[in-house]
Design a protein around this nucleic acid. Structure first.
Length: 469
RNA sequence: GGCGACAUCGCCAAGUGGUAAGGCCGCAGCCUGCAAAGCUGCUAUCCCCAGUUCGAAUCUGGGUGUCGCCUCCA
C-alpha cells in the first residue's frame, strides 16, 4: 500500500506502527446541520482507504469524531429552544443515516466532544503546567505557538511576518496572532459551559481531536514516536486545524500525532467551492431523494480523492451508465453461485487501489472485465464457470468499492412502484403476443407506450427485460 | 501580502523520463422484424515559451490561466 502524505507531499509506502494493524482517525462533522456532499466525499474517500486496507488484510481501527459542542451549535440551541443533546443527537443520527445510505462502513469508534471533556481538560492542564498554554484575564486558555519549535511542520504556513496580512482581526488577549484557543471561557448566562480547574467554559475546536486520539488510540495503537498511523480530513483542515492539533499533541504528549496525513479534495458546485459561507451547500439527503445512494456513491468516488470534484448532474448520469453496465452483466450471470474472483482481475483492482487509491485505474479495469466477459458470454452464453467467476468478481467489487451488491433486476427497478410494475409487465406480455403474431405495428406501439413511461426494453433469448432509464 | 494545488480528445478522467488507459458523446459495422442491450472498429501528442536528456505530458526555468488555504468549514 502506498499513500500520498500531504505533509511530506509525496507518495510513501505505508508501514504501520504495528505490523498488520492500521489505526486511522478522521475529522468528522460539527453536528449543527445536515451532512452535505463535502462530508460525503470525505467519508467516502476514507471508506475506500479502510476497505482497501482490509482487503490487504490489515486489522483496521477507524475513528471518526462528532464535534457536538461549538458556537454554531449553541447558536442553534438558543434559536430553536431545544436542548443541546436534542440538536446534536438528531444531526448525528441524520449523518449516520446519510453515510450508511452511501455505503460508508461505520467507524469503529465515534467519540463525541462532550464525552471527551476530561481528556481535553487534562491535556490542556498539562500544557498549562508546561507553560505552553496560558490563561488570559477572560478565562480563555490559549496555546502559545512560539513554544513549539516545530509549529508549521504540517502546513509550512509559518511566515515570519509579524504584521501578517491575514484577513482576520486578532484579539489583543493573545500573545501571538497565531496562538489559538484551547478553552473558551463562558460567555453570558445562556452559554453552555463546563466546569474545569482553569475556568468555566467549553473546549476550543482543535483540542478535541488531539484528546480523543490520545484517549482512544495512543495507548493501544501508537508507539513512542506516533499516536496513530493515519490522520485524515478535508483539505481545508490542513491549516490551521491539523497544524494546531499536531502542535498541541506534540507538546502535551511528547510524540507526533500521526505517521501519515491524508487530505481529500473539495466538492465544487459550478466550479466554486461548496461551503457554508457561500451558501451553496448541497445536502446529501436532498441528493438521496433523487438518486439512490449507490449511484451517488459510485459517482462521488469516481474521481481520485485528492482532486477537486466538480459536482454536476451530467457527470453523475455518465457515471451511472458505468454502473448500469456492471448490473447488466450481473443480470447475465444471475442466478448462479459465486466461485472465486478471477486472479488477474482481483490483483489488478487491488493493486490499483493500493496505489494511493487509484480509482480511475480500478474503474478502467472493471470496464475491461465487463466488456471481455460480455464478449465471451456472447460466444458461449452457457459458460457456467465464467458466470460463477464473474459473480465472484462483482461480489469482490462490492466488498472493496462498495457497489454492485444489489440484486440486478431490482437495481433497474428502483423508484418503480408495484402498480407500475404490474402495468409494465402486462404491456410486455401484450407486446410479446403481438410480436408472435408478427403484428409489429402493434408491438412497436406498445413499446412506444412503455418507453413513454421511462422504461427501456431489451429482447433477449431469456425473454423481454426492462429497465428504468 | 504569505503558502499551495492544478492545466491531458467535445465532456469526465488515468498516466510523474521511454514514445498518450478507460468511460460518456459521435461515426461505421455485427446482432435484431425494427429497436434496445451487447460486441468490433475509428477519433488527442498532452496551456504557451525556453532548457536538461539519446528520449519529456512527465524534470528545470519563465509565462498565462483556473482554484484553494491563511476566518467556521469535509
Amino acid at each position: 500500500m502506498h499513500i500520498y502524505d500531504s505533509v511530506k507531499k509525496t507518495k510513501l509506502k505505508f508501514e504501520s506502527i504495528t505490523p498488520r494493524k492500521a489505526s486511522i482517525y478522521i475529522c468528522g462533522p460539527t453536528v449543527y446541520d445536515n451532512a452535505h456532499l463535502g462530508h460525503a466525499r470525505s467519508s467516502l474517500s476514507f471508506d475506500l482507504l479502510v476497505r482497501t486496507l482490509k482487503a490487504l488484510r490489515y486489522d483496521v481501527i477507524m475513528g471518526k469524531n462528532f464535534t457536538d459542542i461549538d458556537d454554531k451549535i449553541i447558536k442553534k440551541v438558543q434559536e430553536s429552544g431545544k436542548s443541546l443533546a436534542e440538536i446534536t443527537t438528531y444531526y448525528i443520527t441524520r449523518y449516520q443515516e446519510d453515510m450508511r445510505a452511501l455505503g460508508v462502513i461505520d467507524a469503529d469508534i465515534e467519540p463525541k466532544a462532550t464525552q471527551s471533556l476530561e481528556a481535553m481538560e487534562s491535556m490542556i492542564q498539562s500544557l498549562i503546567d508546561k507553560d505552553i498554554a496560558y490563561i488570559v484575564e477572560s478565562g480563555d486558555v490559549y496555546f502559545d505557538v512560539s513554544k513549539d519549535k516545530k509549529y508549521g511542520a504540517i502546513s509550512k504556513m509559518v511566515g515570519d511576518d509579524q504584521e501578517n496580512q491575514s484577513r482576520v482581526e486578532h484579539t489583543s488577549l493573545k500573545r501571538n496572532p497565531k496562538d489559538f484557543a484551547l478553552w473558551k471561557a463562558c460567555n453570558g448566562e445562556d452559554d453552555i459551559c463546563f466546569e474545569t480547574a482553569f475556568s468555566k467554559g467549553r473546549p476550543g475546536w482543535h483540542i478535541e481531536c488531539s484528546a480523543m486520539i490520545e484517549e482512544h488510540f495512543a495507548k493501544t495503537h501508537g508507539n513512542e514516536e506516533y499516536s496513530i498511523d493515519i490522520h485524515g480530513g478535508g483539505a481545508d483542515l490542513l491549516f490551521p486545524h491539523h497544524e494546531n492539533e499536531a502542535s498541541q499533541s506534540r507538546c502535551a504528549t511528547g510524540h507526533e500525532l500521526a505517521k501519515y496525513w491524508m487530505h481529500n479534495g473539495f466538492v465544487n458546485i459550478n466550479g466554486e467551492k461548496m461551503s457554508k459561507s457561500l451558501g451553496n451547500s448541497f445536502f446529501v439527503k436532498d441528493a438521496l431523494k433523487v438518486y439512490d445512494g449507490e449511484i451517488l456513491r459510485n459517482y462521488l468516488i469516481s474521481v481520485h480523492y485528492r482532486n477537486d470534484f466538480n459536482f454536476n448532474e451530467e457527470d453523475l448520469l455518465n457515471s451511472k451508465k458505468r454502473l448500469d453496465k456492471l448490473y447488466r452483466l450481473k443480470k447475465r450471470v444471475t442466478p448462479t453461485k459465486a466461485s472465486k474472483p478471477n486472479k488477474t482481475f482481483y490483483k489488478a483492482i487491488l493493486s490499483a487501489m493500493s496505489d494511493d487509491l487509484n480509482i480511475s485505474v480500478a474503474l478502467a479495469t472493471i470496464d475491461e472485465m465487463i466488456s471481455s466477459t460480455n464478449d465471451k458470454l456472447n460466444e458461449n452464453p452457457k459458460n457456467k464457470g465464467l458466470k460463477k467467476e464473474t459473480l465472484a468478481n462483482i461480489e469482490f467489487l462490492d466488498e472493496l468499492l462498495g457497489f454492485g451488491g444489489k440484486e440486478p433486476f431490482s437495481y433497474f427497478q428502483i423508484g418503480i412502484d408495484k402498480e407500475t410494475k404490474i402495468k409494465i409487465e402486462f404491456l410486455i406480455q401484450q407486446r410479446d403476443e403481438a410480436k408472435k403474431a408478427k403484428d409489429y405495428e402493434k408491438s412497436d406501439a406498445i413499446r412506444e407506450e412503455i418507453s413513454a413511461m421511462g422504461i427501456s426494453l431489451m429482447d433477449t433469448a431469456e425473454g423481454t427485460l426492462w429497465e428504468k432509464l
